[in-house]
Amino acid sequence: MIRHKLMRAVAFLLVLLGTSAFALPPATQSNKLPSDSIYQLNLHLVDQGGKAFELRSLRGEPVFIAMFYASCKYTCPLIIEEIKRTVQALDEADRNRVRVLLVSFDPARDTPAALTAVSVEHHVNLAHWTLARTDPTGVRKLAAILGVQYRAMTNGDFNHSTMITLLDQEGRIAAKSDKTSALDSELIAAVGRTLAGQNP
């Protein structure tokens, strides 16, 4: 009886969810931000040096963006190393143009000092990399726009999906990768496509 009800409920659920539509508008190069750019989001960030900046200030070059937190012992270091490897695998000209932005899930603990410590530990080049924090609402919105799931645990850890997202020069999602222990050739190819798209 209950099983029957559940099956009906599940069927209803499937109908409910079967109605999503998605269309990608063609690339434009006007000054107006594309409608599907994540730079539409008003997101105030503070970098590892304590300097405030807006997410959309990254417009203009391709950006690898990922979320992490400083006290993370497991996949977060892998995410950072994976981005380093991917950037290293690019041609030198491309490598110099790509930016990397890591945003913390953990605004309560990830102060600029904590972010700086991570950048030192992983020897990241701060000319191209930014480690940043935002407020709790900003974290939720950025995760939502990137499709990252995360959940705070009582012990101070976060369970979160690992995701490296490549944004094109206009802030549109060009590629996503959830690989953290093998070089994702698709991500590298996407950088090439993105840069080629701007300079035909």
């Binding site: 497991y74 939720r140 799931q149 369970n159 999906s161 953290t180």
Partner: peptide, 26 residues
């Protein structure tokens, strides 16, 4: 927190050990 409700029942994708989809021990 609609995107925080179901984060992983296992931290590894069973089919591909190279893919760590979720961070978090538990």
């Amino acid at each position: 927190d609609f995107n925080a409700l179901l984060v992983s029942t296992d931290s590894r994708d069973q089919n591909d050990p190279d893919r760590l989809k979720f961070c978090g021990a538990g």
